[in-house]
Design a protein around this nucleic acid. Sequence first.
DNA 1: ATTTTAAGTCAGTGTTGTTGACATTACTAG
DNA 2: CTAGTAATGTCAACAACACTGACTTAAAAT
Lengths: 166, 166
Amino acid sequence: MSDAPTGEMLMRQDAEEHLRKGIEAMFFAYRGFTADPDRILADMAYGRAHHRAVHFINRAPGTTVNNLLEILGVTKQSLNRVLRTLIEDGLVESRVGTADKRERHLFLTEAGQALEQALSNAQRDRMRAAYSAAGPEAVAGFCQVLEAMMDHDLLRMYRLLSETDK
Amino acid sequence: MSDAPTGEMLMRQDAEEHLRKGIEAMFFAYRGFTADPDRILADMAYGRAHHRAVHFINRAPGTTVNNLLEILGVTKQSLNRVLRTLIEDGLVESRVGTADKRERHLFLTEAGQALEQALSNAQRDRMRAAYSAAGPEAVAGFCQVLEAMMDHDLLRMYRLLSETDK
DNA sequence: ATTTTAAGTCAGTGTTGTTGACATTACTAG
DNA sequence: CTAGTAATGTCAACAACACTGACTTAAAAT
């Protein structure tokens, strides 16, 4: 019934194995990626959603709610719950737009910046260690593959974010 | 007050920017990574947790509950809820251990294998596209950095999984 | 003047995680 | 053999974070 595997079949098998390894690597690595900030957030009344909001407000100060909604890819009800607590706790400031008064522009307060720093320092420390362990060529490949994995519109947003800071 | 930036300072700034890009790339790419299986699961009464369970049972057939708990990194109560529905729905079979009768060995039924195939095909298609877009050297770097990001014990598990299938 | 847009809110629901407590069964060590 | 420990499963309660759907307010656009 089954013939001996051809060279091409073996190559394909190898490629499938690489895919599977990559999938599992993503799973385990993402756990590490979020572990350190999660530990900091666990003590407070905040979670990963707060981290993401604070990160992108810091990244693009003055961004509007709609903008943030697109970046985060959640519903406005979901974001609003997070945003409300951050504003109540004095970590985020919401200013009425000048050009368009319907819009709210979001900024981190000093306390908000302090939290953002604490969270991203923890995350960056791990990232820095991984980068220096793997070396610069590996890092380039890492980013290339990640970009290729993104949905089209998310890739657009990712690139837009990088462009804005010259 | 502030002196002109030295060459070293500029290099550091550049490195920090790379870190930030990598962090955001992980965020956006992980969304793409889970998007396709999530779409399939949305129609059923299942979620991402079911996908993970099914994936690793397929990966290591006959694995025990404790084993799976370690791999997934959740509480037994959390896993049990997922596992119970999968067993009730006839996707997973739980066999009493022969050597140690306290243990339950987990297997996918034919229906379970069908679901696993559907989910991992969707995920692998995206991965395959990303791999061929980025090229083999990029893929090697991708995996290197991901491994360097993992927690020590997760890296051990990741490597153990790859070894078992020769 | 009507429609659309940006933002916020209320209520309900579902998945996935957590603690803590407890029961059953079976292996292990004394 | 008995006591302790280990593997599994379960009940209850709770929290974070996502969703849908419906609705309001204010301001901009047509």
